[in-house]
Nucleic acid binder design. Structure first.
Lengths: 262, 262
DNA sequence: CCATCTTTGTGCACGCGTTCACAAAGACAT
DNA sequence: ATGTCTTTGTGAACGCGTGCACAAAGATGG
């Protein structure tokens, strides 16, 4: 997962645990796929496999929503799609603004997964005057000056921040002041917001760092196991097992293109 | 947080809890900022505030790494930066490939947060022959056919999947077969991988859905509170409180650009 | 109508993560 | 050297989330 919610003392909203809420979209996606294949019913076991979770967990999750299953049969796909959609609030229209139309903002504007789930990109906003009017994903970019009026005129309550880190807090403050109460933050900064405003953070670099940690651990263990196996006469696969080395490490096989990104 | 790890029965890698590992990059970022401002030492209280966490939690997190603080003074910023970097494996070079150079892939290739933390974009890979050779972020895109040789020649162990959902599993299988053992998946699919391969998922749409859930709850509570307050003669702010409506909902104030993304 | 079989819904136990609160440790002044 | 003051490091308690395992519920066949 990208990174999660920004501190909230485990508020159990309307009795539904936070962990369950986070999994509902997963179930919804799996169910939608089944629905498209016209599958009428599905067991907790099958659905759990499709969503990549434990079946007991899935049943417990659904039990928070109510008793929507039929024992001996399973769950009615269409009915469950509707119930989860309603629970997540996806049966209504959510106008969303995206602030910061750089590479990432453009990617978000083009992302198809929004429209299909009740999210409507109401406006794209950027601070660069040269961007103003230029269409991205078929929507003309508007200047930051109009942020407040856009929010109010469209009744926007969800904002997406895809600006550089330096601008994020400022943009956030303006969004909140204009009435936005939920923010999805892609900028690598800790946003401070008043009570009652939800912030979720997605941080690409953090995810990679977590992977690197486990990767390093695997390499270490593998190296150790390799030595042990070697001593025993077995051949282990050292693959990418290389120890901590100098900064100009070239990898095991040399011959590296070595092109640096910006 | 975007969505988290894909099932792992709470493996405590080398005694460091998973939850702590996920916060280390956060601390590292705050510490780097302090380092750039030439701040020599920092207390757990200050650093916790900067990282947006509880100070007790931060101290406990650090205690898993060792006793790097000085009582009565705090932590040495430079030293802690080094220790955390080492723990996360960021003192070594991690070649990374990005597969799927659409809007998102390009955004990732341009993302500056990678290079500064030991990650090097070794190659950009796309299935579209028309993309081949075209430079993105200064790196020429290569065709999928070369995936295996790129992985092997560069000793790549971390892959980023930014393809459409339909291609993700196939790409994943090829990455794994070629030797990749850690995958960051941006495609909205559950990937199945053999044991020993780590997968982390970032799902933009899921994050928004979780926000929508809380937003809906807030609107509901607000409406209820509003009614109560109204009965008492007070005026509450109903802001974006509108109930479930038809699919072609235009928002409360009409006048919506109403352009749909792909 | 009864028996059997499948699958749900959940009580319970366990473990991880969080937080409190405090003793130990060191800096610093006298 | 001694006392005071600050801040760390951690023992202990608590709460949430997970997974097991089973009873209840309904379908299905005879």
């Amino acid at each position: 997962m990208a990174t999660g919610r920004t501190h909230r003392p485990a508020t159990r909203s309307r009795g539904i645990p936070e962990a369950t809420v986070a999994r509902l979209p997963l179930y919804l996606r799996a169910l939608t796929a089944l629905s498209e294949r016209s599958v009428p019913t599905v067991s907790s076991e099958e659905l759990a496999a499709a969503a990549g979770v434990n079946s007991a967990k899935l049943r417990k999750d659904f039990s928070y929503l109510g008793s929507y299953g039929t024992r001996g049969v399973g769950y009615d796909v269409e009915y469950l799609v509707y119930q989860i959609s309603r629970e997540l609030g996806l049966t209504q229209d959510w106008p969303v603004v995206i602030v910061g139309i750089g590479n990432l903002g453009a990617a978000l504007a083009n992302y198809g997964g929004f429209a299909s789930r009740g999210f409507r990109v109401a406006a794209l906003i950027d601070a660069d005057p040269a961007m103003a009017g230029k269409p991205v994903a078929g929507i003309p970019v508007q200047h930051t000056d109009e942020l407040e009026s856009i929010i109010r005129d469209n009744g926007v309550s969800i904002g997406v921040i895809a600006t550089p880190a330096g601008a994020a807090q400022q943009v956030c403050d303006r969004l909140v002041a204009a009435g936005v109460t939920s923010i999805l933050n892609f900028a690598p900064t800790v946003l401070s917001v008043p009570d009652g405003v939800d912030v979720r953070k997605v941080d690409l670099s953090i995810e990679l760092q977590i992977l690197a940690f486990h990767e390093q651990r695997k390499a270490g263990e593998e190296a150790a196991a390799g030595v042990a196996a070697q001593a025993a006469g077995t051949t282990a696969v050292p693959a990418a097992a290389r120890e901590e080395s100098s900064a100009t490490d070239q990898g095991p096989d040399g011959d590296v293109p070595a092109v640096m990104p910006a």
